[in-house]
């Protein structure tokens, strides 16, 4: 339906020809923009509803009072996925977990999963790559945060927390006060959730437009298989290179996915592309400066190092299976 609308708009109203590069590029631009904006709104809305029912405080209270025999990693990954994330809430979340005596590894799982699996990332992947790739991304994002958190937990890194966090951790008690959650009725929150979802769309709108515009231009002008001559799945160094290049970049999934989509269409292996995306989304300099308040540089280094390693590994796995 959206394709029909885009075809009608570009080929009938604008009068561009189906056979020209310009026609193809403009058509692609309108089709992708409309599709992704609808998806983003719907997914943010659904996640907003889930979040209203299960605020992160509830997870915290649950984890501090229940023994889950390893399942707490899974719970943390799942909650991280539905929790809206901005780099500055990572610190309060981190401390909230530490104060509750939740193991550091579980906290790390949450910290990896929260930015990696977000409404923006899911909407962009669904819009650009379809259901199958999105599922692969989602599942591997969860697995990655579970294994990453588990490994980090085994490394006994408590000594590398900053002093005041260490003292908080020592004071922590499993059964301390149940943290207050907001008491607003669900019916009252629904309009707010809708407004917030629209806010998410508005917030990333400009990145979507820029990303899709660049993607559309490349889509129309770069020949098929162009990148294959430079980067094929055979060259072992392509995955680590993509991941390391992407690490310091702090970009919104909204802007990067449409560009990466075109790279894939023109011959970059999908696994390499997904690893690149994960690295852009999870590892960034602003995130590191935020974490500096609770961790020493050494711990931030170890955290980013382990995550980088697992992203590279998953990149190889994707290239093998897809």
């Amino acid at each position: 339906m959206i394709q029909k609308f885009a075809d009608w708009l570009v080929f009938s109203v604008f009068g561009l020809s189906v056979d020209t590069s310009l026609g193809v590029a403009v058509n692609f631009f309108f089709y992708d923009t409309i599709k992704i904006i609808i998806l983003l709104f719907v997914i943010s809305f659904v996640m907003g509803i889930i979040n209203a029912y299960f605020p992160v405080e509830r997870l915290r209270n649950y984890l501090t009072t229940h023994k889950l025999y390893g399942l707490q990693y899974f719970a943390a990954a799942l909650f991280g996925a539905v929790t809206p994330f901005c780099s500055c809430s990572s610190v309060p979340l981190f401390i909230g977990f530490v104060k509750g005596g939740i193991p550091l590894g579980v906290t790390f799982t949450f910290l990896i999963s929260s930015p990696l699996v977000s409404e923006v990332a899911v909407a962009m992947f669904l819009g650009s790559f379809g259901v199958k790739v999105t599922l692969v991304y989602l599942i591997s994002g969860m697995v990655l945060s579970i294994i990453g958190g588990f490994v980090l937990g085994k490394l006994r890194l408590e000594n590398y927390l900053t002093e005041w966090v260490k003292s908080l951790q020592q004071q922590s008690t499993a059964n301390n006060d149940v943290w207050q959650t907001e008491n607003t009725s669900f019916a009252k929150r629904l309009p707010t959730i809708a407004i917030e979802s629209w806010g998410v769309v508005k917030g990333v709108f400009i990145y979507i437009i820029i990303g899709i515009a660049i993607g559309a231009a490349m889509h129309g002008y770069i020949p098929e298989g162009f990148f294959e001559q430079y980067l094929s799945s055979d060259s072992w160094w392509s995955v680590p290179l993509a991941v390391i290049l992407a690490a310091p970049i702090y970009a919104n999934a909204a802007g990067v996915v449409p560009i990466v989509e075109v790279f894939v269409a023109k011959g970059i292996p999908l696994g390499t592309a997904i690893a690149f995306m994960m690295s852009v989304i999870t590892l960034s300099i602003p995130e590191a400066t935020m974490l500096k308040k609770v961790m020493t540089w050494k711990l931030i280094g170890i955290f980013f190092g382990v995550v980088t390693l697992f992203i590279i590994l998953s990149g190889y796995v994707f290239n093998l299976v897809m």
Binding site: P55, V56, E57, P92, G96, W179, T181, E182
Partner: peptide, 28 residues
């Protein structure tokens, strides 16, 4: 951030009116 944590808050922004948490984790 250290002061914020004394209020037992995990998602910001939060609005507290007369000691009671009214809004957290979103902009009203």
């Amino acid at each position: 951030i250290m002061e914020i944590m004394n209020y037992n808050i995990m998602s910001t922004p939060a609005i507290i009116i007369d000691g009671e948490i009214k809004i957290k984790g979103r902009t009203p």
